[in-house]
Design a protein around this nucleic acid. Structure first.
Lengths: 236, 236
DNA sequence: CATGTTTTCGATTCTAAGGCGAAAACCCCG
DNA sequence: CGGGGTTTTCGCCTTAGAATCGAAAACATG
């Protein structure tokens, strides 16, 4: 401790650190989260986020990847980022456990194999969840929604190539309200995060004009130069 | 650990958790951070962020307030928020210490008393800093800059009432580039975060029209409904 | 080949933001 | 007490992003 202090009297006895991941994806026009069902006594049969205790020789970013690999093929994850720390002294019973929560995303076209105890659940309509994991899921959902508006994070939800109407349904499901396809395309195009793939695909079962395929220009997270407020002069 | 795992072999021996705060303010048109000079052997005489080990019965938000109270009157803080977790296994020598970093802000008109070892330092032009604290300071600065653009967080840097030109200097110093006073006022007013106080103040030493006073409509953090992209229909 | 369906594109309107320059309000000095 | 200098404030104009609407394009089906 840097300075003497009496407030935290009995010190750090038993202060463990765990890492948790809220892995989200879109399926059938709904936002889903990856949960596994507990088979042990605290919160038996409740559904929990993947995670586990931080190892002695790893940072939290490394740890979350390792922990997730027990539940899902981590190579299928398209994005992972730090979310927030949850540290209520009683967030889990009988021990002191601080959690660093992460947001993970999986594209809607990949379907990783899952262990028997693990399943996707709709975020609106969660089962009984363990500990404070529901709050973590909702925090992850809100973070995703915010970033959809001011970054290119859609790439992490979408397949490599997609039609505009497909993308519209992805965004609508993630945001929780309908978005207009025409606007979505123009906004993302003008921001330079969306580009035409040049190819088109066959029309649907009901006919209709065969849609063109698009892709995201980058698959790395990019914040779209936020709100023009107060930028340095003479700049795009 | 939720599942058996061999990767984090020797477990969590000695994994401590500390809380650190990068407290920023504007002074003389420069962004400053609160640092104290170490008198102990790891990184002796280097400048460090206020903080300390997490207590057994407190969450990180409570802890950072307690730790800060050793260096500064926490009632003078206008805003505190979680920043990020820093968890490199070797970020501090000889022990394993995970840090939850916070961003704190102090209005430019209050001048809290400081201990002898504690001082404000310009963020551009830091002295020799301890451990990874410089990276934390820069993360805090970037977070502040981003939020100035899309929230009302300016209230945490400004006095209760202020002139437009005063506010312009605050924003310029925090952002690192000149902003136009006329634009600043209109943008913030239109967003509804700024309002006229009704009163005016005496003109400066060189004469000139006496400026009107303004205030922030709210002193709680509010995200300005971000980028109009894809909003639900029929909404301002 | 007509009809229905879906995608795509263009035209228009609306709102936000940035850039001047003029007017307002005050000081100081002669 | 009036003119010149200074600072603030306001209005007009331009630019750009976003939302809405409707028409045109391209295909399937009967």
């Amino acid at each position: 401790m840097h300075h003497p202090s009496t407030a935290a009297a009995d010190g750090d006895r038993d202060t463990g650190h765990e890492v948790l991941a809220a892995v989200l994806r879109i399926r059938e026009d709904r936002l889903q989260v990856l949960l596994w069902q507990r088979a042990q006594t605290p919160d038996l049969h409740s559904w929990a986020l993947p995670g586990g205790r931080l190892g002695a020789a790893e940072d939290v970013e490394t740890s979350v990847t390792r922990q997730l690999s027990e539940k899902v093929d981590v190579h299928k994850l398209s994005h992972v980022e730090q979310l927030s720390v949850f540290s209520d002294p009683h967030r889990v019973p009988a021990q002191r456990l601080v959690a660093t929560a992460f947001l993970g995303l999986v594209p809607c076209d990949v379907d990783p194999e899952l262990p028997a105890d693990t399943r996707w659940h709709p975020v609106d309509g969660l089962p009984t969840t363990a500990f404070d994991h529901e709050a973590i899921v909702l925090t992850a959902r809100d973070r995703l929604r915010a970033k959809l508006s001011y970054s290119n994070i859609g790439f992490a939800l979408a397949p490599p190539e997609f039609t505009v109407s497909k993308l519209r349904r992805l965004y609508s499901a993630a945001l929780g309200y309908r978005v207009a396809a025409t606007n979505l395309q123009r906004v993302l195009s003008r921001r330079g995060v969306l580009e035409a793939a040049g190819r088109t695909v066959a029309a649907g079962p009901n006919g209709g004009r065969p849609p063109a395929l698009f892709r995201f220009t980058s698959r790395d997270l990019r914040i779209t130069d936020p709100f023009a407020v107060l930028r340095p002069p003479h700049q795009a």
